[in-house]
Structure formats: structure tokens, C-alpha cells
Amino acid sequence: MLIHDVDFAEMYREHMRGSDRPHKPASAWDERARALSDKVMQSDYTRQFIARMDLSGAKTLLDVGCGPGTIGVSLASGLEAVHGLDYSPVMLECMMENAGAAGLDNVHPLLLSWTDDWKDVPVCDIVVASRSSIVPDMADALRKMTSHARLRCYMTHLVGGHFGDAGIAKLLGRQQQSFPDYIYIVNLLHGMGLYPRLDYMEFPGRLAGTANVEEFTEKVAWSFGELSDEDRRKLREWYEADAQRARQGGEPMRWAMISWDAGK
């Protein structure tokens, strides 16, 4: 078998079906939207993402899974129009509040998900998907992004397949099947006749920086789902056994930044 014989689209879908992290409905993101909005707009992640973008010739941008406007609103002052697409109504409300606070009137919300029909989504010069790429069908997502971009696309995708520390996953007996890694995307884009560029960003993990074991446990619950009393006991023991490890929250979070020219 050669690489051209491998159906990476179906392999990704099968891998995704085997991942055991519960699907988060829009209501779950609605509940976290305002807390996230306060943290991400001026984050190191945002600065690093934007620093890796080529905006030459761009006047419009589509931000897929935009959240509170982390990327789109941050760039809107230099563009004619930004369209933020998200399936969480409260995330879109936060995006518009952030745009208003910045004195921007060129940011437009789109209440849609990756799996909805995008027939009314405008084609833009740049399309970004920032930390929003855990989708059931990556081939379909990449086609949607590429078909809605005139110039370039940018996507960040999890490296290693685990949002939380792998050691915590093992401790809880959770998420033995990782999420599909970024290399699927590189291979899918190659199969589409495109030439993806690849870079990496590394940050403290999602479980880092907690003030106490209660806060740590709630962060674990967000990543891994409902916790039993036994799970909470194990986490307390893990947290209290090593103070430095507890502050770090385990392994750092790594993101692959994949970009490609749309070819229009």
C-alpha cells in the first residue's frame, strides 16, 4: 500500500468516532463564554497566532468557531469586514460586545456550526479556524474552509490528541482513544492538491495555574466529563503529592498551526 491508497478522510472519521470525550452542545459553551471572553482576547496565544499570519492583500476574514472574537475582532481594525461563525449564541454576543468595546462596526455574527449548510456564508479573503477543529468530518471542514477563502486559510489543531494531560487521562481511565492528530490534516490537504505549511505553538496546559484542588478538579471535569467520587479522590491525591507538578497541571499544550493557499 502506498500513501495515495490510504483514505485519510475515512481514517479520520473512524478515529473521531472512537474518541470518548463527550460532545459539547452549544449550551456548554454558552455557560463558559463570558469567562473565556475575559481571558483570550489579549492572550499570548492570540498574539502568536496573528504573528504567523500573512494578511497581505486581505480585506475580509471569516473566523470559524470564533468564540468571543479571539482572532477576528483582534484583526478587524485593519480589515473591511470580519464574519464570526459559531454555534454558541452567547459566544457571538461576547464577540459583538468585544467589537463594540473596540469601536468596531465591521464585525458580523453567523449562528452556524461546522456541520450546517454554509450556502449563505460569505467568501472572504482569509479563513481561520482557531482551536475549533475537533470536527466529525475533517475532509468536509477543509473543503468548506478552502471554498470560502480567496487567498489563505489558517487552522490550529491539537498536537498529541489530548486536551488534558495524558497522565491525568490514565489516572482516571479516560480518553484512552486520543483525538485525531494534526497529521491527518496535512495528509488531507496534500490529497486535495494543496501545499500546507506547518508550525507549532506551545503553552501551559489547560490544567495549569489553579489556586487549589477544587479549581483543578473543575478544570479536569471540563476536559474529561463528569467525575465520580473516586475520580475526585484520585485527583486530590495527585494534586497534593507534588506541588510544582500541580501548578504546571501536567504536560504543556501544543498546537500545530497549519496554513495553505486557497488557490483562487
Results as ranks from 00 to 15, higher is better:
72 G>V: 01
90 V>D: 12
89 P>K: 07
94 C>S: 12
93 E>D: 13
106 N>C: 00
93 E>W: 05
112 L>K: 15
91 M>D: 11
83 H>T: 13
105 D>L: 14
107 V>P: 03
93 E>G: 09
114 W>G: 00
100 G>T: 14
73 V>T: 07
110 L>W: 14
83 H>E: 02
90 V>M: 11
114 W>E: 00
105 D>N: 15
84 G>Q: 09
111 L>Q: 12
106 N>W: 02
115 T>M: 11
104 L>I: 00
93 E>S: 11
112 L>C: 11
95 M>Y: 08
111 L>D: 07
89 P>C: 09
115 T>L: 09
100 G>A: 15
80 E>Q: 15
104 L>A: 01
84 G>F: 09
110 L>H: 15
92 L>Q: 06
95 M>K: 09
76 A>Q: 01
97 E>C: 09
93 E>Q: 12
84 G>N: 08
72 G>T: 00
73 V>Q: 07
86 D>A: 07
113 S>A: 12
73 V>G: 00
75 L>F: 01
74 S>F: 04
112 L>T: 09
95 M>S: 02
106 N>V: 10
106 N>H: 05
99 A>P: 03
107 V>H: 05
98 N>P: 07
100 G>F: 11
79 L>R: 03
106 N>D: 04
89 P>V: 02
75 L>D: 06
92 L>K: 06
87 Y>T: 13
75 L>T: 04
105 D>Y: 12
80 E>P: 08
98 N>T: 00
90 V>S: 04
84 G>V: 07
86 D>R: 04
72 G>M: 06
99 A>Y: 06
91 M>V: 05
110 L>V: 13
93 E>L: 06
111 L>Y: 11
97 E>G: 06
97 E>Q: 14
97 E>A: 13
107 V>Y: 03
108 H>P: 11
77 S>A: 15
109 P>L: 04
99 A>G: 02
75 L>G: 10
99 A>F: 09
107 V>I: 04
108 H>D: 10
111 L>M: 12
86 D>S: 01
80 E>H: 12
89 P>S: 08
93 E>Y: 06
98 N>C: 00
79 L>K: 04
